[in-house]
């Protein structure tokens, strides 16, 4: 789930220069449109292959639906108000709310751990114990306590999404330049002003990367919790219930496609924001 971004989590943004070396010598750099066209071509080839596979009868019809059917069904569902209110909105609500709470908890926590070494040492054991628990494994326990509603999903999302944001905040704080801090101190700024004007802005790109990671993790938890809980509202419920019907393959695949699109959309929006907000950070790394 987070494999794609994990080098960025560890080293903050410092993994960026590899992009440059990947560009072959003498090969012209692709424009953004050029890359988009290639990406789209890849998607179309895969879709066509799946379509042929399903239509040819090489795979049983109840294991694979033709791509065209799935796309048509997705369009149908997106035009259906009942699908929105019963499936999309509950998932989006839990996803968004969980993320907002997670960030609101994780950033101050990261700031605290990053600026007060004593607290960091004191909490390390607890953190190291809690962090490795796969959050998906907590779904049954939390549903037992909180039922299958919004609270359950939000609690799980918050639990899972807090870690990347908190740790990226913690690492990001260490990235503030000591010379910049000394400069402000020498102009007479106090510790809080230095935190606010130097340390925190320097950490923002890292925190943002943490939020990006947390966004995809939160979607996994939202949909996963719904599927496992089996009752209530949400996209996961739609997928889970389709699984139980006789010819549900098409709806299972459509629900999965829509969940994937949600993740893709959120990630693209955040990536777009990252490029606009942190131009200075990218520049710094390249220089």
């Amino acid at each position: 789930m987070s494999v794609e971004h994990s080098p960025r989590l560890r080293a903050g943004g410092r993994a960026v220069p590899q992009r440059r070396s990947a560009r072959g010598a003498g090969r012209p750099r692709l424009t953004r449109t050029g890359r988009a066209v290639r990406g789209l071509a890849g998607v179309l080839v895969l879709a066509a292959a799946l379509e042929i596979l399903a239509r040819s009868g090489a795979v049983a019809a109840d294991s694979l639906s033709p791509t065209s059917d799935i796309v048509v069904r997705a369009g149908e569902l997106l035009g259906d108000g009942a699908f929105w209110s019963a499936s999309l909105v509950p998932t989006l609500k839990a996803w968004g709310l969980g993320l907002v709470i997670a960030v609101a908890v994780a950033v101050p926590l990261g700031l605290l751990l990053g600026s007060v070494p004593y607290v960091n040492t004191a909490t390390r054991a607890v953190v190291e114990f809690l962090r490795p628990i796969p959050s998906v494994a907590l779904i049954p326990l939390v549903s037992l306590i909180l039922g299958t509603g919004l609270e359950m999903k939000v609690v799980l999302i918050v639990y899972a999404a807090v870690w990347p944001v908190m740790f990226n905040t913690l690492y990001g704080l260490g990235d503030a330049d000591p010379v910049a801090k000394d400069t402000l101190r020498s102009f007479g700024f106090g510790p809080l002003a230095v935190l606010w004007r130097v340390t925190l802005p320097a950490a923002l790109p890292f925190i943002y990367t943490g939020v990006r990671l947390a966004t995809s993790i939160a979607l996994i938890l939202a949909v996963g919790a719904e599927i496992l809980a089996g009752f209530g509202d949400g996209l996961g419920i739609f997928i889970g219930q389709a699984m139980g019907t006789l010819d549900g393959t098409r709806d299972v695949m459509t629900g999965t496609l829509l969940a994937g699109c949600l993740g893709l959309l959120a990630n693209s929006l955040l990536a777009f924001g990252e490029r606009r907000l942190f131009r200075w950070h990218v520049r710094e790394e390249r220089s």
């Binding site: 010379v179 000394d182 400069t183 130097v198």
Partner: peptide
């Protein structure tokens, strides 16, 4: 400071 590039806030 000697390290001007690090002393300015990017």
């Amino acid at each position: 400071f000697q390290d001007y590039s690090r002393s300015l806030l990017p």
